[in-house]
Design a protein around this nucleic acid. Structure first.
Lengths: 202, 202, 202, 202
DNA sequence: TATTAATCGAGACGGTACGTCGAGTCTTTAC
DNA sequence: GTAAAGACTCGACGTACCGTCTCGATTAATA
């Protein structure tokens, strides 16, 4: 998720004329986006303000992020790209999927950034698609692998609906974040992972 | 949830002069609010547009809803006031708590209205308080009663954290609504209630 | 020419609800318009800048002057509304028609204001119509009266084309103003009036 | 007047390296300039639009015309370079000075091109200088010659101010063009020349 | 019965933001 | 070197919305 909307450009670039996209500008805009989400939330989110704070022009912003919400999602996901840490126990491997969220909500204003991104993803179609595709790569796919292994070892039932399992695992995060507007306490991920496995053991 | 922000005043009104609040105006505004949430979402939500569509003056709107998000929450909660239906089995009584949500997401544009309200509640302090207070009255309190009865009958363990249980019960609703942006399929509530009781039975 | 575009409202006002147009705002905007023409000319004329300097909102400006050039014409014509001074000799009465222009080009930045208005009138349809209608009332009509009187007294030929005469009288003003970009020297009007009468005497 | 601002370099060019200026690019740009004046007038005149329509880069435009108005003046004067036609009578020789204007205002969109150039010349210093220098070469100088000959033949008084005479001759053109925004009817030039000579005969 | 205090609609106002476009400058590739 | 392509910052465009205010009309309780 580390590239903008437009650039489907891969390896074989067609080498066109003219200057390249400015990486410093992109970074400054994402920084300002995080700050804006913290200070003004999603509804009062202002592209003008981003432009001022990032010393960028609105033209540049709209060029690379035609839908505003995608900036917010991108600004959050770059913070979520933490290394999956920790043990080899199943419970640890599952907790690792939630740990980036837990960690972020207790880091500086990470809580507000994450909430802003989630609001954007819920309110705006394009941002929603970006967010769901990130979840698919970073939560759904890893979870499928883990569950398949456990089922092979007969640790859990083979009879589960992957969609429902993803829902079961991550939805408490949204509740804490959006409805309770509270950070997650230490150990939240492990606790959720434990409960998750107990449900599957039935 | 059928009264506005300001009027915490009940019974013992100080009997002032002048006309009463216009109920027709209030209804028209809440109707327009629902339509606006459906058509424009939370970020593009416009008070001017409400005023135009409801043939109301902005003055009137700001008089009764100083914080915009509270309009949205109120507009949604009046739709959620459904009669608690159904059986006497524990699973039915718990499913009844989710049924209004399930029903609304499959009714016309109820899905978008509910999402708008939840977004407002997450993005704006006042709206958040209003929403949590509604949840307390309409979900948390009934759930406490049910669980206490079950514990008394020794159907479930006494060892639970009510906050965690509320979270466990309602958070899948937010996931469906906000992240997946999809309506809930028939039987969603009962399925969640079943899983909920199985977790508690441990 | 002392009223805005929209207000065709005369004597019998229809007494609608709501606040009246702010006269102080109108005056401040016209002042700022003059300053802008002096400082930036017609092409670099900026409505944003007017709004800043007049402490007015753009909404207000566009409400009353949907076409920008009409502001410029109006801002100039209010300065041209000088009392027709001077003698009763035919040459004086005709010179009086040019005197407001001559006077304005030698008063502060009147030269630039007048040039701005004329450029606006030439570049923009609506402004052109406003300017020509002002000329009709303030130059063409008075000139017709004077020439009719002189013809009756047989001081001049009856054989003239009024349009051509207006052209002959005022066009040197535009040349000085636009092409030479120079102020008119004292006595310019009387000199032009003299030449004008000599042509008619043929 | 068929060369750009910068290149005061004539015949003896200093032979620098690299390719020569592209004549096709220059022509395309001047064509696009005329079209832009016709379609958008002077205030809405856009260099970006020129670049698009002429398939030129903005760099190239700014290299050769640092002041935008000079493009407009140049684009018009190339159209005015008509052969001095017609008879040997004084009235014909004087009318010939106005004929290019008269002809242009009745040729396609020549009217708008000429108006655009004149507006540019009035609104922008550099364009004004270019325009006045063109007038000097193409109107003032020829007129001086003609008048000197006539005075020598005692056809007219020797007592005239050349500046005033230029004004008298050409200013009706500006009036028609800018204030009346109307094309000149057939015979306009000859009529003006006739009146001009009658004034001088006094 | 008048007065008075509140309601309501309409909408003008100073602001801020929207999303687009233009102004000039600069960078990259091609010739 | 010239040229096309186009990214960049800046700022203006004309529109829409924000929240406050003023205005005329209306509606009840109070004097």
């Amino acid at each position: 998720m580390d590239k903008a909307d437009k650039s489907g450009t891969d390896a074989s670039a067609p080498r066109r004329q003219g200057p390249k996209r400015s990486e410093s500008s992109r970074a400054a805009i994402l920084d300002a986006t995080r700050e804006e989400m913290v200070n003004h939330g999603w509804r009062k989110f202002s592209v003008d303000s981003i432009a001022r704070n990032a010393h960028a022009s609105k033209q540049t912003i709209y060029r690379w992020w035609p839908a505003t919400g995608t900036m917010c999602v991108e600004a959050a996901t770059v913070l979520l790209q933490s290394a999956a840490t920790g043990g080899t126990e199943p419970v640890d491997r599952i907790a690792a999927l939630l740990l980036p969220f837990e960690a972020l909500t207790r880091t500086g204003n990470g809580h507000a950034v994450l909430r802003g991104a989630l609001l954007a993803a819920s309110d705006e179609k394009e941002a929603g698609e970006l967010w769901r595709s990130w979840l698919k790569s970073n939560v759904r796919a890893p979870l499928r692998l883990i569950l398949a292994e456990l089922a092979a070892k007969q640790s859990i039932s083979r009879d589960y609906d992957l969609d429902e399992m993803v829902n079961l695992l991550v939805s408490p995060v949204w509740h804490k974040l959006l409805v309770m507007r509270a950070p997650m306490k230490e150990g939240f991920s492990r606790e959720q992972a434990g409960r998750f496995l107990r449900v599957l053991a039935l």
